[in-house]
Design a protein around this nucleic acid. Structure first.
Lengths: 104, 104
DNA sequence: ATATTAGTATCGTATATCCGATATTGGATT
DNA sequence: AATCCAATATCGGATATACGATACTAATAT
């Protein structure tokens, strides 16, 4: 099924972005992504991303007793998301207009 | 070289977006992308994308005599970019704040 | 203690993405 | 017409992305 604009390749960016706004568990992230893009990423998609972000030192585990494990940004992760956000804006700067037009 | 947020996977989206704002040639697109994301996509990157968008019926050639071949959106392409833009906004809706903060 | 279950983790794989290198084309210059 | 050159096109391959299926784990319920 050949699609044109599938928005693939930004998962780790979005995941990092989400965590930057508040600690989240893998499952919470899956739910949030479901509401944003329609489909819920499979476990085999999201956990490897979290692992990779962890190994890169961008996020770290937060274990609350009796609750699902969450992740929070590290200092390094904050730098990373700041840089990535800047890059995002440089690439997509003219999408700002579309936000106004197309999304309420 | 493990990078976190490489912004890969959006090339066909951006290309379609660019063409939607005015007919462009492959080389013009390469130049525009260079200024946006820093690196200039190689020929082996951009022309297959244009071919693919063509085959999908989203763009078509415009041959001005004595000028480089350009592409323009088809009707189908207009629908596609509208839908893709909507999707983009739904996925990245909260990036609007970042546009204000981070880019001038 | 055992069973259950939600959440997490891993594995193998199909596909997409993008690249560098190389070939080809068409218009302009001579 | 022959040459040159910028633009376009193609090829093979490395890497990344995301998936479904399956396995594990820890907390709770029975």
């Amino acid at each position: 099924m050949k699609e044109c604009c599938e928005m693939k390749g930004f998962l780790s960016f979005i995941v990092l972005k989400l965590i930057s706004k508040g600690n989240m568990s893998g499952d919470e992230i899956r739910e949030e992504l479901k509401s944003r893009r329609g489909s819920k990423p499979s476990p085999g998609t999201i956990y490897p991303v979290l692992k990779s972000l962890s190994q890169s030192g961008f996020i770290e585990e937060v274990k609350s007793p009796g609750k699902a494990k969450k992740y929070r940004l590290t200092k390094k992760g904050k730098k990373e998301i700041a840089a990535a956000t800047k890059k995002f804006c440089e690439i997509f700067y003219d999408m700002e207009d579309d936000f106004h037009k197309c999304c309420r």
